[in-house]
């Protein structure tokens, strides 16, 4: 078990290092950053000053090592747009993105698990097919468009919910629903597949033979075994949702981490861009690591793997 956990942790560290390189390289794709930062009206002197101030005149390897060394100590550099440390900028906006991601995940699970169970219990019937079709429709919905349609219908026509911003908690409802849409099909299919396997197994047959009620069999015995993969995929989905919330934050004008990234990308604020890419990747790596470790603890079969 210990060996499994150590190997898994080592892998996570290696992935982190790769992502560190990727996020650095990404922002260097434009060729000369100083020219992009300076803008179209800059003189050669301006560009030279910027190059020197941001250390862009040093060799790339030196720039990378310097950045990586600082990043490892939690110093992600300074935004040249806000003139503030990037770590602080991300920390300020994190609560919004985190609230959005967690409530989106909660909604997704609340919808996906019952639908998945229902589908599995009626495998092959019209109910199963119908639920599968709903999942396909959810998957085909462009999230940013769904957000705009909700803004028009629920926000403007019905006036039930605020159309942008999160001054009150109601502001989170629409964005969280839209974000949940992207995760529902995957979670639902997984619950369904897990439940079908579980319902066909010997211990369920035993439980049925004992004369237990269907509800008890499904919820207590089968769901417990089907839940494990759902938990680890839920962690993965949360990671995807935090990364994908950039589109939702743009639609609903929520000033979270995604919005910060979008703004920085449009304005060539490269220290922020590389930091947010790194940050979101590390959150994802941490989530999958935690899910794997939890599974290893919960499921003895995985420990020897």
């Amino acid at each position: 078990m210990l060996q499994f956990l150590l190997r898994r942790a080592l892998l996570a560290v290696l992935v982190c290092l790769t992502v560190l390189v990727v996020s650095f390289v990404l922002t260097r794709l434009s060729g000369d950053l100083a020219i992009s930062i300076a803008g179209p009206n800059a003189t050669a002197e301006d560009i030279a000053t910027i190059r020197q101030n941001y250390g862009l005149d040093r060799p790339l390897v030196v720039q990378f090592l310097d950045w990586a060394a600082h990043a490892a100590r939690g110093d992600l550099g300074s935004s040249y747009l806000y003139h503030a440390p990037v770590a602080g900028l991300i920390a300020d906006r994190l609560p919004i993105t985190l609230t959005l991601g967690l409530s989106g995940l909660a909604i997704a699970l609340l919808v996906a698990i019952p639908l998945g169970i229902l589908s599995a219990m009626h495998e092959g019937t019209v109910i199963d097919r119908g639920i599968g079709l709903v999942a396909l429709i959810g998957q085909a919905m462009p999230s940013f468009w769904l957000g705009l349609v909700l803004i028009i219908v629920v926000g403007l026509k019905l006036q039930w919910l605020p159309i942008s911003g999160v001054d009150t908690w109601e502001g989170y409802i629409m964005p969280a629903i839209v974000l949940a849409f992207s995760a529902i099909p995957a979670l639902m299919r997984l619950t369904r597949a897990g439940m079908i396997d579980a319902l066909a197994s010997d211990y369920i047959r035993t439980a049925r033979a004992k004369g237990l009620r269907t509800a008890r069999i499904v919820l207590k015995h089968a769901l417990r075994n089907a839940a494990m993969p759902v938990v680890s995929v839920a962690a993965v989905q949360l990671g995807f949702m935090l990364g994908g919330s950039i589109v939702i934050e743009a639609v609903f004008a929520l000033h979270g981490v995604g919005y910060l990234a979008w703004e920085s990308i449009s304005k060539n604020d490269f220290p922020v861009v590389q930091a947010v890419v790194l940050f979101l990747a590390i959150v994802y790596i941490g989530l999958t690591l935690a899910a794997d470790m939890m599974n290893a603890v919960l499921d003895p079969r995985l420990r020897s793997a």
Partner: peptide, 19 residues
């Protein structure tokens, strides 16, 4: 594993913006 840990939309946006 590395590919999956990279935030898809964010990286795509960055590449298109910088290239």
């Amino acid at each position: 594993t590395c590919r999956l840990s990279i935030p898809l939309i964010l990286v795509a946006l960055t590449v298109v913006a910088f290239v």
